[in-house]
Design a protein around this nucleic acid. Structure first.
Lengths: 137, 137
DNA sequence: TTAGTTGCAAACAGTTTGCAACGAC
DNA sequence: GTCGTTGCAAACTGTTTGCAACTAA
């Protein structure tokens, strides 16, 4: 994504387009591993040596607040971030600590249809959070 | 569950039946809210004033190692524990931080059948981790 | 110009660890 | 008696915060 587009995206979400935010958003969009704040920081600091880890945290928190990213929790002991593109699931392997996106509209539709017919007592479903645990081959 | 049964259960899983472990297992089985280590500690310490928080952590970790409990991660910033009884899903509300078991064999079978026919490329599915996010009424 | 953002260092929360005393087997 | 477990305090890790300096709009 070009710098101009990144700025536009930030503005669309009501955020000032600072260098730091542009760098974080750019890096997060480019990184497919669902990185932690620290991982993002280590990548960004190479191009942008004055950025601080706290800023990465604050930036990710702002992004989360406006809905630009989601937090993913896995078995590992830090938060991972997911730049939101569309509704999807995750594949995860605890031993490798590897997390991948999994797009499957059939599965998504199947589950959504299931809950159109079947209502859960005393619960109004808003969102489905599905992690598929297994081994990458 | 009676004390005798608790001891038996611990032994079956290869664990020495100490007072502390009996208390933690007993409390965890009785508590339906999927408590954190600290919550369990606060309950147990009333009956057993000398137990320490570190012991609760160590105990829960032993339980996890042998497969007596599972860790559940939600939006909240501590770990919650689930005494394993059978395969089930979870309902979760982030605002209330409320987590409930959700048993639904139809849903479970539907998803399992789906993956009998549809294989994921380069991934061998072992386990399904499903959280239903929404509002309790 | 100014309200919001950054960077630093210090604080924080939940969890883990080292180790001497203890207890289950 | 032995070896694993406990309890304490201290350490650790990831994350958050307070605040003065800075900067995008």
């Amino acid at each position: 994504m070009k710098k101009k587009e990144l700025i536009e995206k930030l503005n669309n979400y009501g955020l000032k387009a600072t260098h730091q935010r542009i760098a974080v958003l750019d890096t997060l969009l480019k990184t497919k591993t669902h990185p932690s704040a620290e991982e993002l920081y280590k990548i960004i600091v190479k191009q942008y040596p004055t950025i601080s880890l706290a800023t990465v945290y604050k930036t990710l928190d702002s992004f989360k607040e406006v809905g630009l990213v989601k937090i993913i929790k896995t078995d590992c002991d830090y938060l991972r971030y997911d730049a939101i593109i569309s509704n999807h699931f995750h594949l995860y392997n605890p031993a490798q600590n590897k997390l991948e996106d999994y797009y499957d509209n059939d599965l998504k539709n199947m589950i959504e249809n299931y809950f159109k017919n079947k209502k859960i007592d005393n619960f109004e479903l808003k969102e489905i959070n599905l992690q598929l645990i297994g081994d990458f081959k």
